[in-house]
């Protein structure tokens, strides 16, 4: 799936949970940061865009890249690699804009967007004891894809100050 090829932002339609005959599924927007594949529930994603005009805010926490202008709203831009203390070098290329409770949305800068996946809830597993190069406290659950592990992030935890 290719998203945000053009300059314009690409709206992700929030897909609702679909109920199949005997299983519930969760739609996830996935993205890459270094070697990791992360997922965020699609209903939390506002949009993905390529506008990387970020204004730095001196004195802010190191994981805060700055602020950006999204159609008149001022968003906080977070560098997930720093927030999650990822041991990975990442080139931020896209903004993944996420709804934040009672706040203006927040943008995560990401390297590459992945597929939009629909995964059965029953197949989601608790985080393993250890994930190499990643803090466990930010992992909500994981989903085993044929070739790799998809990590569902705990958004609330990331938004905690």
């Amino acid at each position: 799936m290719e998203i945000a090829k053009s300059e314009e932002s690409f709206l992700v339609k929030p897909e609702e949970k679909k109920t199949f005959a005997f299983r519930e599924t969760l739609t996830l927007v996935t993205f890459y940061l270094g070697p990791f594949l992360f997922g965020i529930p699609a209903e939390k994603v506002v949009e993905i865009n390529k506008d990387l005009d970020i204004t730095p805010v001196p004195l802010a926490e190191n994981y805060i890249l700055g602020i950006m202008n999204l159609r008149g709203e001022i968003l906080t831009v977070i560098d997930l690699t720093k927030k999650l203390e990822l041991k990975a070098q990442v080139q931020p290329k896209l903004n993944l804009i996420i709804k934040a409770e009672e706040e203006t949305p927040v943008s995560f800068v990401i390297e590459k967007i992945g597929d939009i996946l629909e995964v059965p809830l029953s197949k989601l597993e608790p985080p393993p004891e250890r994930v190499e190069g990643l803090k466990k406290e930010y992992i909500d659950r994981v989903y085993q894809l044929p070739d790799r592990l998809l990590i569902l992030l705990k958004i609330e935890k990331i938004f905690e100050n």
Partner: peptide, 21 residues
């Protein structure tokens, strides 16, 4: 946003004529 509440030297932000902040 709430991320900047503990920095007393800012009272907000504004969008300039060129769209930058």
């Amino acid at each position: 946003g709430k991320w900047f509440k503990n920095i007393p030297i800012y009272s907000g932000a504004t969008i300039m004529g060129d769209g930058k902040l």
